[in-house]
Simulated scan of single mutants.
Amino acid sequence: MIRLYTENDFEKMRDAAEILCQTHLAIKKVIRAGLTTKQLDEFANKFIVDHKGAIPAQLGYGGFPYTLCISVNDEICHGFPNDYVLKEGDLVSIDNVIEYNGGLADSCWSYAIGELSDRDQKLMDVTLEALNRAIDQAKVGNRIGDIGHCIEEYAESENDFSVIRDFIGHGIGKEMHEDPQVPHYGKAHHGPRIQAGMVFTIEPMIASGNWPMKLDDNGWVARTQDGSTCAQFEHQLIIHEAGPEVITDQNKYSLNEDDLKFIESYRF
């Protein structure tokens, strides 16, 4: 069942999205070579819980034991923060979900540690552009398949990368994962019709090599079978008659004075 939401729901989602985006902006200020992914997770938890008074919704979800999913290089998604020390040339995708005052917001962003290889930099650029192109397809009257078709054509046919098939976008609202399912590949003009009031994510995961994946023994961390790098960017959209509203656009938000003091005083 695809739920349609109201302006009252949207306001709660926007409030959660502001905290989510401020968390990403804070991470952007501190992420660097020499930090462990576990240190980043601990920083984000304190920023969200102690500083913002929000709930890191991934923590405990289905048994997931961390605030952030931090996926490095060949990890596709659901990466476990651990003692891995970030180094120059790493490509890091950080997925964050916030619950605040009854609203949910979900966004993943990829970060370069220092200078990437030419192919990995292109991978990041193409993944973000694929997301932006897909957002343009998320309008009333189109179908969900138009979104995936747009991503697949751009990433694979035009740029020789591979769209991960095993993980997809999703509806979000009362729960973190709802209908509709939003694949990042597929046929145009197929799937559910997009309607005003829908809320869903588009979150392409794109590999520099082939798309088949494997799971680590922990049952969570997914990585490419061929060891190729993967990038991911994700936005949460509210569908209006006039077009999609990207509530997780970091450019809409900024860090306030208290946020900056928190970051400056934090000790890794």
Results as ranks from 00 to 15, higher is better:
K214G: 11
V182T: 09
P183K: 08
K214E: 15
G186H: 03
G186A: 06
H184Q: 11
H189E: 08
V221W: 02
E178Y: 02
A222N: 07
D179S: 10
W211Y: 13
Q181M: 06
Q225G: 00
A188D: 02
V199Q: 03
Q225C: 08
A207V: 05
M198I: 07
P183C: 07
A207S: 15
G227N: 15
G227S: 12
H177T: 13
Q195S: 08
I206A: 06
Q195R: 12
P244H: 05
A222P: 00
T201S: 14
A196R: 01
P183W: 03
P212C: 11
M205G: 11
S228K: 00
S228E: 03
L237W: 13
H235I: 01
V221A: 09
V221P: 01
I239E: 03
W211N: 13
G191W: 02
C230K: 02
R223K: 15
M213H: 10
Q232S: 15
V221F: 04
Q225R: 12
D217C: 00
A222L: 10
P180N: 04
I239P: 06
E241V: 10
H190P: 00
H240E: 15
N210P: 00
T229C: 11
A231G: 03
R193G: 00
I202G: 07
Q232L: 10
L237G: 02
P204K: 13
P183N: 06
H184I: 11
V182H: 11
E234G: 15
P244W: 05
E245V: 15
E241H: 14
Q236C: 12
A188I: 10
T229D: 08
F200S: 05
R193D: 00
W220M: 09
W211T: 07
Q225V: 12
S228V: 08
G197V: 07
G191L: 02
P244N: 06
G197A: 13
L237C: 09
Q232I: 03
Q195G: 01
Q236H: 04
M205I: 01
R193E: 09
Q236L: 10
H177E: 07
H240Y: 15
G219R: 09
V199F: 08
M213G: 14
E234H: 13
V221Y: 00
P204H: 07
Q232W: 05
Q232V: 07
D179V: 01
P212L: 08
P212A: 09
I206H: 09
Q232E: 15
H177C: 08
R223G: 05
G186D: 01
M213P: 03
E241M: 11
I202Y: 08
H235V: 09
G219N: 04
I202Q: 07
P244C: 04
H190S: 15
S208Q: 14
S228W: 03
E234K: 06
A242L: 03
A242M: 04
E241C: 04
G186Q: 03
L237M: 04
A242D: 13
Q181W: 09
C230P: 03
A242S: 14
E245Y: 11
E203P: 00
M205Y: 08
A188R: 14
P204D: 09
C230G: 04
I194A: 03
H184L: 12
H189K: 14
H189M: 11
H235K: 14
E178R: 09
V221N: 08
P192K: 07
R193H: 00
Y185T: 03
W211E: 11
I206C: 06
G219Q: 05
L215S: 11
D217I: 13
Q232N: 15
V182Q: 02
Q195Y: 05
